[in-house]
Amino acid sequence: MELKELFAKGKFVVTSEVGPPKGWQIEKTLEEAEILRGKVDAINVTDNQSSVMRFGALATCHFLKDRGFEPVFQITCRDRNRLALQSDILNAAAFGIENLLLLTGDHPLLGDHKDAKPVFDLDSVSLIHTVKKLEDGSDLAGNKLEGEPPKFCLGAVVSPCAEPLEPQLFKMEKKIKAGAEFFQTQAVYEVDKFVKFMEKVKNFGIPIMAGIVILKSVGMAKYMNENVAGVFVPDNLIEELKKDKEKTKSGQTGIEIAARLIKELKPYCQGIHLMPLGWNDKVPAILSQAGLI
């Protein structure tokens, strides 16, 4: 089911994500998805996440769909030009994939093939525009598509705690204008900032899912503070992680923080998106502690 229908019904939407393996045997990834069965509305599949070469997101989405999951196909502009992007989007339509999340993608210099050609033929805004054109029955160049045009629910991303925020806002507006139907955010740890962001985008009238990344360790929190754009883990959370090393190691602290954040954020947004980064087994606990299942 398209996520926008759930939003339309007023449901608080919960999604999580899986990352395909570096290899072709994808059973383990599918097992991770099984943990989420019945607990989330949809599962995102990342596209060569962090510019690290992996099994394809489209095929993974196909496998998930076959097994009765609702996949969200993430597409970045880093690796394909406009022809490849459009044909993959048509492939997705044929596989019955209904939800897309359209992003620019990390630069190849950040990944494991630093010497790769960064494509960025299109960017997130023009990619949304392109999908919209496909939905209207023609390709980007204006040629008519044969048969029924595809139908999707188009997601985009925004970074609500970025400094400065304004460039994010104007691009978000462009994405909406181009056809984005829901937004998923970068990881949120600062509820006040998020609330302020939501005030600013209220007028856009678009469903927003707050991003949640489970804090695995103090080191991870510090790393994100130093290196990850638009993410800041406040000191009190780092203190909390420091307090009981065993508890943090077992993931308990991370679960508690995530659940608490969800509870605090829930009144302000239309859904949450969990990014467990391999800790899918912790997701049910988070959701149950947050009172979502």
Partner: peptide, 24 residues
């Protein structure tokens, strides 16, 4: 822009620095 984006920032900048800052 490292990605030659024409519609706005990718969101990868941290503290005003491009995401490829360390690599560049």
């Amino acid at each position: 822009c490292a990605k030659e984006l024409v519609n706005g920032p990718c969101g990868g900048a941290k503290n005003g620095k491009c995401e490829i800052a360390s690599a560049i």
